[in-house]
């Protein structure tokens, strides 16, 4: 069959909402787009453990500590599900890890911001996981089977992440004035980076149109961002916190909140590696990989030895 007719058959399947599975024929560009998107997503889960891991030993109570531990452990699992899905496209795990460690691969820019106070852990759960959920729910219907299935698993686990974050902030907001101020400060710092998590605005997003045709994406960046704002503003009201956007106001006509412009210059800077923690995050991953080398080697040597032993017995 010619590439042209294969491509047509492929697009027909997608138009009929049929899933593409690993061994099915797919255009090179579809494969490449998925590898890029899924690996970036996997890297984000893994690097995303760092800002929160920073607070595990300093969680204010045992209840908070077990919740945070469980959440960070989930994120490690999400990374694994996604790397596995990515490997079904014919790329090796080692290659993916190398790309992360060399700084070649991207991950979500949000994780290049520091977690300065305990309230940041609340803000991350509420806003960062909230934004992640907004992105991930439509991905459960992505045209690529393994990615869609990984997302179903991830989304199931994700909802407690957001709730525990909101609960942390709610507790602070009902506490002393200092505590409430700490919550407000966290919201002030995390609000705009959270909105940037949805990616560049539609007019600057080069991949969106093709990804929508391939049903990898179901909504544009701006659509998802708007949904997130509409969902989150009333939640901030419950907390009694002020969203740091002087232009934010309900627009009766559109039925949406109107919000102020995003500082895309900042987004670009963080993406290019100049955010507050880019170097620190990469360094932490490189060190972890380095320090784990002997463990990987020892496990492999042990496995090889077990096989030898079993041959002797047999």
């Amino acid at each position: 069959m010619t590439t042209e007719s294969l491509t047509r058959r492929f697009q027909d399947k997608i138009d009929q909402e049929l899933k593409i599975e690993p061994k099915d024929w797919m255009p090179d560009a579809y494969r490449k787009t998925l590898i890029r998107q899924i690996s970036q997503h996997a890297h984000s889960e893994v690097v995303g453990m760092l800002p929160e891991g920073n607070w595990i030993t300093r969680a204010p109570s045992l209840r908070r500590k077990v919740a945070l531990l469980a959440k960070v452990q989930d994120e490690a699992g999400h990374g694994l599900y996604l790397y596995s899905a990515c490997e079904t496209l014919g790329i090796r795990r080692e290659t993916l890890i190398e790309e992360l460690l060399s700084g070649k691969a991207k991950y979500s820019s949000i994780f290049n911001y520091p977690t300065l106070t305990w309230a940041d852990i609340g803000a991350i759960g509420w806003l960062v996981d909230g934004a992640a959920i907004m992105n991930q729910v439509p991905l459960c219907r992505c045209s690529y089977g393994p990615y869609a299935r990984a997302m179903v698993r991830v989304c199931k686990e994700e909802s407690f992440h957001q709730r525990q974050g909101f609960e942390i902030l709610l507790t602070l907001c009902q506490g002393a004035a200092d505590q409430k101020a700490m919550a407000q400060d966290a919201l002030d710092r995390w609000w705009w980076p959270s909105l940037m998590m949805f990616g560049p605005s539609d007019k600057d997003s080069i991949h969106t149109a093709q990804s929508m045709r391939w049903k990898i994406k179901r909504f544009t960046n701006d659509e998802l961002r708007q949904k997130f704002i509409d969902m989150t503003v009333p939640q901030a009201e419950v907390l009694g916190l002020t969203i740091p956007d002087p232009e934010l106001q309900w627009d009766e006509a559109s039925g949406h909140y109107h919000s102020g412009p995003i500082d895309w210059e900042e987004f670009g800077q963080v993406l290019r590696g100049n955010g507050p923690c880019n170097a620190e995050r990469l360094e932490a991953r490189q060190r972890a990989h380095q320090e784990g080398t002997w463990v990987r080697e020892a496990a492999q040597a042990y496995a090889a030895k077990q096989i030898e032993e079993s041959k002797k017995v047999g």
Binding site: Y81, R153, Y302, A303
Partner: peptide
């Protein structure tokens, strides 16, 4: 799903 491991027990 899948994962990497040195042997079956792991």
């Amino acid at each position: 799903g899948s994962l990497h491991a040195a042997d079956a027990a792991m």
